[in-house]
Computed example of a mutant assay.
Amino acid sequence: MFIHSLLRRSISLTIIIVCFFLVPVAYADTSQVITFGADLNSEQKTLVARKFGVNLQDTAIPLIEVTNAEERRYLQGLVPNKVIGSRAISSAMVEVLPAGSGVTVETHNITWVTTDMFENAVVTAKVKDARIIAAAPFPVSGTAALTGIFKAFETATGQKLDEESKKTANEELVRTGELGEAIGKEKATELMLKVKERVIADKVTDPEQIKQIIINVAGDLNINLTPAQIDQITQLMQKISKLDLNIRDISSQLQDLKTKLDDVVAQNEEVKSILQQILDALNGLIEKIRAWFGL
């Protein structure tokens, strides 16, 4: 009798254990994390989440907030207070990808910062192998979005990014945007990337050598910089040179950005080729007209 009772208990325990492992358990997907601006209301959060392709009523993705005070910590002194504002609006979703995937960025309602600028800046902070979406419920500049991106990446990976790297990345984003207002965002991003790559690859720390790299790269890209712009970029690159960045990591993480820049160059060359053909045809026509009239 005792043995039968023991067997029944053992069988029941076994069934319970088996059922425990067979029943689906909902775990939070920490490979994806969403950061909302803390001053968004519930309706705005729902709207932004749709930009991420997420239904807030049915998601296991961790949701965290970023405050204006956190944004201000990295932007204070880089942009005027009125640009930082008093509310945290910009939001982000970060999805950690398999090693070697690189970094890609998509934006919605971000008006001042381009996807290329984001990609270039986040890699300076050593964000890697991530799909990033930055968004807002209405048009915003996007200058504060990096704070939420970094916070989401840290939460998703469980690894803290270096504070100095995050500050420098924010400065790089702002300086690129300011330069872009003078020479165009694409040219500014390409200039910053190429200068950064040379500084890191050659381990240059001397300000005069950095300045010469900037002048050389600007010349290669047919970009005219003012002395003030050169000095500002030099100061930024001095900070970047101290971040222990690896040129192989930079290159591998920015394949998406490099491809886009190469496409722009190719398109420009194609346009130049077409324009040259038109000019050659016009010159040929003019020569024929001169010949007809004996000019």
Rank of each mutant, 00 (worst) to 15 (best):
N68E: 08
A69G: 04
R72G: 01
R72P: 01
R73I: 06
R73W: 11
L75G: 03
L75I: 09
Q76T: 12
Q76P: 01
G77M: 08
G77V: 09
L78K: 08
L78D: 08
L78N: 09
V79N: 08
V79P: 10
P80G: 11
N81M: 06
N81S: 13
K82Q: 14
V83Y: 07
V83E: 15
V83A: 10
I84C: 02
I84N: 09
G85V: 02
G85W: 00
G85H: 08
S86L: 05
S86P: 00
A88T: 05
I89E: 07
I89N: 03
I89V: 12
S90R: 00
S91A: 03
M93L: 14
E95I: 09
A99Q: 11
A99C: 00
A99V: 04
G100D: 12
G100V: 05
S101M: 06
G102Y: 02
T104R: 10
T104G: 01
V105K: 00
V105R: 00
V105F: 00
V105C: 04
E106I: 05
T107Y: 06
H108N: 13
N109K: 12
N109F: 12
I110P: 06
I110L: 13
T111A: 14
T111W: 04
T111L: 09
W112L: 13
W112F: 14
V113H: 07
V113F: 08
V113P: 06
T114I: 00
T114A: 05
T114C: 02
D116P: 03
D116R: 13
D116T: 04
D116S: 14
M117P: 07
M117S: 09
M117F: 06
M117L: 10
M117T: 10
E119Y: 01
N120F: 07
N120C: 02
A121G: 11
V122F: 13
T124S: 13
